[in-house]
């Protein structure tokens, strides 16, 4: 257990030192700040534009960083042979993978939380100083929570592909899976309209087997302050965590059998 924690913290430190992460951090802050500028161009829809831009920027950058870190970390360790230093120690491959996973999640979650705090500050400030904005709502917090769940699940999926293939193949696969995961409800509906039984079954299979990222996306609800029940929130959390655990189990099995030579 201590090994996992050490690897996780080490991963967080490494990611923090990474130039791409730093650049993305700076870019993220500029983008979140630019929300204030975007509001200057609008009329009568200040709440909406601030919410969509703020959450939209976080929702755009957090998967980008997740993909970059999640798919690059393991292949890079293998390529640079640094993995042998760890494997030689009394730490199982599973513990290494889970530790690296936790380290990655902490890094991206930290970015999401800091950007989220900045976004909420802007909403609060706008709410206090303008009659056009109504400040922070519960739906804003739920949307941020959904983004965190997305990071947790997407990192796990990235690690699954990274454990099995090269950096580029896994980056491409995870990017496709991310978009399909957001479209799976549409695919399910479209397939359901087909007259072919095969297409209907495939559509249903895609919907249930692939990660349903759309389920974790509460950004559109925050736009109109549509309420989300606690039961739905609990169910979504359960779905994301259970799927993550399953994906990590498969990833560790593959990683344990992988030949690093």
């Amino acid at each position: 257990m201590n090994g996992v924690v050490s690897i996780a913290l080490n991963g967080f430190r490494e990611a923090r030192r990474n130039r791409v992460t730093s650049v993305l951090f700076v870019f993220a802050f500029i983008m979140v700040f630019s929300t204030t500028v975007s509001v200057e161009f609008t009329v009568a829809t200040f709440d909406r534009v601030m919410t969509d831009f703020g959450l939209g920027v976080i929702g755009l950058l957090s998967p980008a960083l997740t993909l970059f870190l999640g798919t690059a970390l393991i292949p890079r360790e293998i390529e640079r042979r640094t993995i042998f230093m760890v494997v030689a120690r009394p730490v199982s491959r599973s513990a290494f993978l889970v530790g690296r996973y936790i380290g990655n999640v902490i890094t991206v979650a930290f970015l999401v939380l800091v950007m989220g705090a900045l976004f909420l500050l802007q909403m609060q400030f706008a709410g206090a100083t303008s009659t056009y904005s109504s400040g922070i709502h519960r739906e804003h917090l739920i949307a941020l929570y959904g983004l965190l769940l997305e990071v947790v699940l997407l990192t796990a999926v990235s690690f699954l592909f990274a454990a099995a293939s090269s950096q580029y193949v896994s980056a491409l696969s995870v990017t496709c899976l991310y978009f399909i995961g957001h479209m799976s409800e549409d695919l399910y509906t479209l397939a359901g309209r087909s007259k072919s039984d095969v297409i209907r079954v495939v559509g249903r299979a895609i919907y249930y087997l692939l990660p349903n990222f759309d389920r974790l996306d509460f950004k559109a609800r925050a736009t109109y302050f549509d309420p989300t029940s606690n039961a739905e929130l609990l169910s979504t959390t359960g779905y994301a965590l259970a799927y993550t655990v399953l994906v990590l189990i498969v990833a560790t099995r593959i990683f344990e059998r992988r030949d690093f030579k």
Binding site: S38, F41, D52, H182, M183, A220
Partner: peptide
């Protein structure tokens, strides 16, 4: 709406601006 579903609110607001 299908292709950019993950970032639809952002896309809508960019077009709105």
């Amino acid at each position: 709406s299908s292709v950019s579903k993950a970032h639809l609110p952002l896309l809508i607001d960019l077009y709105w601006l």
